[in-house]
Simulated assay, not measured.
Amino acid sequence: MTAPQRFFLIDDNPHDQLLAMEAFAELCPDCHLTFANDGSEALRLLQSTDELPEVILLDVNMPGMNGFEVLQSLKKDPRLATIPVVMLTTSGAPEDVAAAYTLYASSYLVKAQDFSAFLSQIEAFLGYWAHCRTIHA
């Protein structure tokens, strides 16, 4: 079993992108982390590449298409529908969690407030996915 190496983060916040980049660089230097700043850009990138990510990290609160709209679009596209999508967001609202799972998110993580806690969170995330099988390996 090979752990996922290609991750795709869809998040409009440059600070959160930087934190994720630093966490992945420290915890999984062999991982490839790609970014999109919004849902439209993410869908364009995903639909135009031959090398799909093995796991998508998706923020809920974004301008334009929010995370739920992006998730819905991903799951409607037969080529992208099987990619696991993990919601990574600041919202812990029960209705947001329920909406994500209703739209077939694989998991829901509320972003930790400080970098040390975020690092632990990403370490647990990577550990989990290291033991899962994905289709796009």
Rank of each mutant, 00 (worst) to 15 (best):
L9F: 12
C132V: 08
Y108V: 11
L126F: 10
F8M: 01
F118A: 08
A36E: 05
A25S: 08
A98E: 15
N66G: 10
E54Q: 15
A81R: 05
A124Y: 03
D12E: 11
E26F: 01
I10A: 02
L109R: 03
V110Y: 05
E69W: 00
V85Y: 01
L58D: 09
L33Y: 09
Q72A: 09
Q17M: 08
P14S: 05
M65A: 11
P84K: 02
V85C: 11
A99P: 07
S106H: 12
S106A: 14
P94E: 12
M62D: 10
P4F: 13
S40Y: 04
S40W: 05
E41Q: 15
A42W: 04
L109C: 11
F35E: 05
H32K: 08
A137G: 15
A130W: 06
D12F: 03
T49D: 10
T2Q: 07
L80W: 01
Q72N: 10
P94W: 05
F68T: 07
M65Q: 14
P53F: 06
L58H: 06
K75D: 00
L18K: 10
A93Y: 13
P94F: 03
A98Y: 10
S40A: 12
Q5E: 09
N37Q: 08
F8C: 02
P63M: 12
V70C: 08
L57T: 12
L71N: 02
A3C: 06
K75E: 02
F8D: 01
A112V: 11
A20G: 04
S48Y: 08
L46G: 13
G64H: 13
M62Y: 11
A100Q: 05
T2M: 06
K75V: 02
A112C: 08
T90C: 05
S91A: 11
L88F: 14
P14R: 08
Q47L: 14
G64V: 14
A81M: 03
A36F: 07
S120G: 15
E54R: 06
A130N: 14
A81T: 03
L18R: 05
V55R: 07
T134V: 15
T102D: 15
Y128P: 08
K76N: 12
V86I: 10
L103S: 13
L19K: 02
E123A: 15
L33C: 03
F24I: 07
F24D: 02
H15I: 03
A93V: 11
T2V: 09
K111G: 09
C132L: 13
E54V: 04
Y101E: 11
R79G: 03
E22T: 00
V110K: 04
D38R: 00
G127E: 14
T90A: 13
L27Q: 01
K111V: 08
A99R: 10
L45R: 14
A20P: 00
Q17D: 00
L58S: 08
L126Q: 11
P78D: 07
T102E: 14
C28V: 01
K76C: 01
S106Q: 13
P29S: 07
H15V: 08
